[in-house]
Nucleic acid binder design. Structure first.
Lengths: 176, 176
DNA sequence: GACGACATATACAAATTTGAGTACAAACTT
DNA sequence: AAGTTTGTACTCAAATTTGTATATGTCGTC
């Protein structure tokens, strides 16, 4: 089961919604930080899953608006897919690894300036997310949402650690 | 420029290849660990980029075999795309964050067993990659390839740190 | 009460991805 | 030498993703 589907099914758990509302709930959850879900994909997913019986077209709308609700099959499939995501370690798709793979094709000057820029951006991101966490606490969001941010910060710091260490070695000529 | 394209152009930098050889070079580089590149996409990418002038069909083959080589435009586009990947921090697409977002939909028992399994798998992965690094050193691979692994290990450790800490809090009932 | 700015809500064509399917040659088995 | 596995090399239809285009309501303001 694709992440797209899990996300759509997940926001429908608490009641039927139409496409636009699904998109907004996902945005509230901050999915754009760690997923790449285009609007069009939501409508496609809703339609497809309705055809497959995971969803019901609860209310065919005046003006094209359609409200979708979970069926029992859909609820079961969500659980199956969710457990799958917990148990399987799937490779994280990281576009930066692509950059890294070809670092030897850049000049030392290009490399060090890109790396420094990257370090700065990462430090900025860490600070932003840290603040977001403080903010949400007060805002009444469930505590497990903070875990997403906490994990995010750890990952960003891991990247930062790498860049800071690597830029030093590039300067010394040990890399690439 | 998509990661798919960068990867294909990247392996063609050192000389023309046919589709199957591109796929093998990518596999040697370990792209399957951090990218999701289906075989079909390689052939599609090659054909499309040839139509767009980034590649040349160097040798139309007997038996459908076609060898592609970089054009000057392709080489320039590769550089442009590579720099883009260095300068832009794109969100890492992490399917586990999907799992995390809906952690409150699982029972404590489901959660703790999934988390423990995950911790074990992560520890195993860290060890595997660590060994792979030691092995490659002797094998004569360029030093910057190790950097991919080094970053990988840091990211895995970040995930492990999170799981180990979170499973404790789930047990204490602080989560979700 | 008309106008523009903005939010709501979806549709759609084009591009890309997916992975099973095909085909054929080389190496190995019995 | 006939059969079987393995490796090479690509094709293709189906599914999915992407991003832009479109349509419609709503709110203030002049």
């Amino acid at each position: 089961m694709s992440s797209t589907r899990i996300l759509i099914l997940g926001v429908l758990l608490d009641g039927p919604l139409h496409g636009y509302e699904v998109r907004r709930r996902l945005e509230l959850m901050g999915t754009h930080h760690w997923a790449n879900l285009a609007y069009g994909s939501i409508y496609h997913g809703l339609g497809k899953m309705a055809d497959e019986g995971l969803l019901d077209r609860v209310e065919e709308g005046k003006g094209g608006k359609t409200v979708y609700g979970l069926t029992d099959i859909g609820r079961a499939e969500f659980m199956r897919g969710l457990l799958g995501h917990w148990w399987e370690i799937k490779p994280i798709v990281d576009p930066f690894q692509v950059a890294l793979t070809f670092m030897d094709r850049l000049s030392q000057a290009e490399l060090t300036s890109a790396m420094e820029a990257r370090a700065a951006q990462l430090r900025f991101s860490v600070e932003m997310v840290t603040r977001a966490m403080g903010g949400k606490q007060a805002y009444g969001a469930p505590p497990h949402i903070d875990e997403c941010l906490r994990l995010n910060i750890l990952q960003l710091r891991a990247q930062l650690t790498w860049v800071e260490e690597a830029v030093g070695r590039v300067r010394k000529g040990e890399l690439p």
